[in-house]
Design a protein around this nucleic acid. Structure first.
Length: 473
RNA sequence: GGGGGGAUGGGGUAGCUUGGCAUCCUGCCAGCUUUGGGAGCUGGAGACCCGUGUUCGAAUCACGGUCCCCCCA
């Protein structure tokens, strides 16, 4: 790595994602190839969420990526929110289409057109479907690999329920899945709460969100879950006959997380040596490097390496013996750049003591272990490193979250101390807008345990809500 | 939305003002050699973002386009 995380954060991140072979730029602006090392992380996220979805009765399905303009327009607020960044298909071959087709920026409208055909009785509810797919948003803001690209992968869950309460419960459950995937799998601590009306999903009654703090103090929205109320149901005519013979509109939710999470992992845990991956999502968890001078030593150290590899693999770990024709120093640097959580060095010195040297990626700490202790140590390191990364990130988040009482303190928290600000807000959208204008920060969320009290960070009137503010990606 | 910087083998670069066989590092291939924190030697393959113009001749000058990065809103 040429750039330092603390000196040129932005350049450091770009160097990191490319050198660690997470992505590569593709020919169209704002698009990229997701390389195997990053796609593996996505697969772990998919696996983690997919089994929770299925346990909860959410089934996978697939809907078309083409959304006719007339459908996208049906919900006015929704359309207004998305139209600035919609990419359109206007031609088929050389023939201009009668109606242009949006490349889905999200799938509410196309899916709910189908939902209206599939829902007619209370017996059809709840309807809970999810799709894993790509999304196109023709963003004009600053693009950044994984965090903001014009095409990305995500999952979008869409449910229809008989009652508001049930839909509220689904919104909450989805958000909790997202909190779990961030904290338990990716070691990214998050704040949870509600978006303000100004920041909510276009067409929703309310939006809930999880937000993480990045090393430069900016907020990253990591997942959202929306209560759509009956807004779409009324427009797309999703009605059901109740048990008592009446007719009601369904209550709906939608929720999603995207490949943006991969960028969050790289950004948050990476260091000046390169990528640092939490063991649970590392494509390669252990690399074993034999070290030798003579052919005889090469045979011995490689054999010992392979013996350890077999034992570790039997314990369910992904292991590679790097016996390539490179110097040990080169291999150390290479695998550190790629973020492998644990490295085992086996040289003649280790053989003489019938053991191996184990180095952990997160702290760089190296220690010798006798052969019999290696397996247990590596297994426990998987948990220790996973936990350490989460704790380190939690500590960072705490240290970069500052309680503020007025605009001046808010500016200081954002500009000098670089982080989140916790404040009170009177609830007036004009104060929210003014703060955004004057500081560049937005209200990231209103926590679920928001309390009245304090003074509005902008106007000084009585506070009605607790808020967290930050600049964001 | 505004401002600034940039694009030269796979990656990083020199050359551009003053037009004339394109520099160096790294990576890649082959061979030798080497191995406890990015070793060495020899040989080899590999590039001027795209288009138009000016010119005997364009990486270099002009115009247009595409793409990337940074800062501000």
């Amino acid at each position: 790595m040429d750039n330092k995380k603390t000196e040129n954060f932005s350049e450091w991140y770009l160097e990191l994602v490319q050198k660690a072979e997470l992505m590569d730029y593709a020919p169209v602006q704002g698009t990229m190839a997701i390389r195997p090392r990053a796609y593996f992380v996505w697969e772990q996220i998919q696996r983690f969420l997919d089994c929770r979805f299925k346990e909860a009765g959410v089934q996978n399905a697939y809907f078309p990526m083409f959304v006719p303009e007339s459908l996208l327009k049906k919900e006015a607020e929704h359309f207004a929110g998305f139209v600035p960044e919609v990419a359109w298909v206007t031609h088929g071959g050389n023939e201009q289409l009668g109606e242009r087709l949006a490349l889905r920026p999200t799938s509410e409208t196309i899916m709910y057109t189908m939902y209206s055909k599939w829902v007619s009785s209370h017996r059809d509810l709840p309807l809970k479907l999810n799709q894993w797919c790509n999304i196109i948003r023709w963003d004009t803001k600053t693009l950044k690999p994984f965090l903001r690209t014009r095409e990305f992968l995500w999952q979008e869950g869409h449910t229809a329920h008989a009652t508001k309460q049930e839909a509220d419960g689904q919104v909450k459950q989805a958000l909790d899945w997202y909190r779990q995937v961030c904290e338990e799998l990716l070691a990214i601590p998050v704040l949870q709460g509600k978006k303000t009306d100004a920041e909510k999903f276009p067409g929703a009654d309310y939006t809930t969100t999880i937000e993480a703090i990045m090393p430069d103090g900016k907020a990253l929205q990591c997942g959202t879950s929306h209560q759509l109320g009956q807004n779409f149901a009324k427009i797309f005519n999703i009605r059901y006959k109740t048990e008592s013979g009446g007719e009601e509109y369904a209550w709906q939710t939608s929720w999603g997380v995207s490949t943006r999470l991969i960028g969050a992992v790289a950004m948050l845990h990476g260091d000046d040596r390169g990528l640092v991956l939490p063991p649970k999502i590392a494509p390669l968890q252990v690399v074993i490097i034999p070290i030798y001078k003579t052919e005889e030593d090469k045979a011995l150290t490689t054999l010992a390496s392979q013996r350890h590899a077999v034992a570790l693999q039997a314990a369910g770990l992904s292991v590679l013996v790097d016996d390539s024709d490179r110097t040990p120093g080169w291999k150390f640097n290479e695998w550190e750049l790629k973020g492998v959580p644990v490295r085992i060095e086996i040289g003649v010195k280790d053989l003489a003591k019938t053991g191996a040297t184990i180095a952990r990626r997160d702290t760089g700490f190296k220690e010798f272990y006798i052969d019999d202790a290696v397996l247990e140590k590596v297994k426990s390191l998987m948990d220790e490193i996973q936990e350490n990364l989460l704790q380190k990130a939690r500590l960072f988040a705490q240290e970069h979250t500052h309680a503020v009482e007025n605009l001046e303190e808010l500016r200081e928290a954002l500009e000098i101390r670089k982080g989140f600000a916790k404040a009170a807000w009177c609830g007036d959208p004009r104060c929210e807008e003014a703060v955004k204008e004057e500081t560049g920060a937005t209200i990231r969320l209103v926590p679920f345990d928001s309390k009245e009290g304090g003074k509005c960070v902008y106007c000084g009137k009585r506070g009605k809500e607790t808020i967290y503010l930050a600049k964001s990606y």
